[in-house]
Nucleic acid binder design. Structure first.
Lengths: 213, 213
DNA sequence: GAAATAATAAAACGAACGTTCAATTAATTC
DNA sequence: GAATTAATTGAACGTTCGTTTTATTATTTC
């Protein structure tokens, strides 16, 4: 046999990507073989190499697109000309929504960095740094204009991101908490962490208004 | 050749453990081969199997001892008959000190869980849950007696642990911050997160007193 | 100092790995 | 409808993997 009826390059490539994300997120990059991936897609191993020249290139593609998507959704969600508080709320809400929605690829981008070649690793880290820089800028602005009370903006940014991304470790959709509920709780914790000058009541009101928008 | 002069089972086993921790933390469990490990120890591959029947058993041993050490240091450090605030301070200080001190094995215990068989995974998760349970108990007690103001103790505990463990991602000893400095900042953030009823001045004073003790 | 045991070396096992190549068929082009 | 291109198969390449077996030497026991 050779080319199969109804075969389509675009569809096959998409199927490979999707299967790869699921498999690598579940078993880890090193533990997933090209044969296993091919079997999952329902195709022969050699077919994979039509779309990705090496296994590492496939991993890199998945990570790069994940990071690009993250930066893109933030670019779409970011408020222009807003006070630091509103920007921070938008950042947190976007971050949590994105990471809950894309749990498998987030897992990969967090766990499989060491399987990248130095050059590719640098590229991914650049994207990640760019994203984190956005949060640091918000914290600095808020610290400058008195909206926040922060000891160390760099350290606080790292702590916040660690805390927020950690949501994917335990959150399962459709269980005790909804995405909105989780977001609200994390927003509340964030505001405390940055020493935002407001009562918790105000906080919740503000939060809900932003989420509805 | 066979047995080498000066060879000693205990020393060899310790050397294997140490080399394994370093290699697996750096390259990942799946990426490290028994041959690579043997070369690092300066021994033939077959010698490894005198001490660990399989590669997975070696990984499991490293993880189990890491978790046991974590629970032990907390057992030694935990204050008896103290208010929730003092207990929380002790927990955070112990957690951060431990994780900075044992960065490689922490990395392994966080990243390589999926390489364990279901039974072994369960054992490790039990230890982890026991450790996290301690924090939840502190938060609950503090919430009950009014020391803390917490929405959701379970969620706050997870957020705190994520935030604190994240220190190993960016912290490098001997750089900008000392262990004490990091601990103090994280303690400050923790107290804000749990809505501890005290000013920041009081907080810092309290913190420093505890750290000296 | 002989006997027993502990520690390691050396070599090999079959299986699985990422990757490549040639052949073959489906779809498209003109 | 023939020629061309796109998509895939099937088989194979050399390498590396975790693990085992057997032999050999150092150390300990008595």
């Amino acid at each position: 046999m050779a080319r199969t009826t109804g075969s389509d390059g675009e569809k096959t490539e998409a199927a490979i990507r999707e299967a790869a994300v699921e498999l690598i997120a579940r078993y880890g990059y090193e533990a997933v073989s090209m044969r296993q991936l091919a079997a999952e897609v329902g195709v022969q191993v050699a077919a994979l190499y039509r779309y990705f020249p090496t296994k590492e290139e496939l991993l890199f593609t998945l990570m790069r697109e994940h990071m690009n998507a993250l930066l893109e959704t933030w670019n779409d969600a970011r408020p222009t000309k807003s006070d630091p508080m509103a920007r921070l709320i938008a950042y947190v809400a976007n971050h949590i929504a994105f990471h809950i929605e894309r749990r498998p690829s987030t897992h990969i981008s967090n766990m499989e960095l060491r399987s990248l070649s130095p050059e590719r690793l640098t590229q991914i880290l650049k994207l990640r740094t760019a994203y984190e820089k956005e949060l640091r800028a918000i914290l600095r602005d808020g610290s400058d204009d008195g909206s926040f009370d922060i000891d160390d903006t760099g350290l606080t940014a790292m702590a916040l991101i660690q805390m927020m991304t950690g949501v994917i470790v335990w959150f399962r959709p459709g269980e005790r908490l909804s995405v909105e509920g989780v977001t609200e709780t994390y927003l509340s914790m964030t505001m405390r962490l940055v020493g935002a000058t407001m009562s918790r009541e105000q906080d919740n009101v503000h939060t809900r208004a932003q989420l509805r928008a």
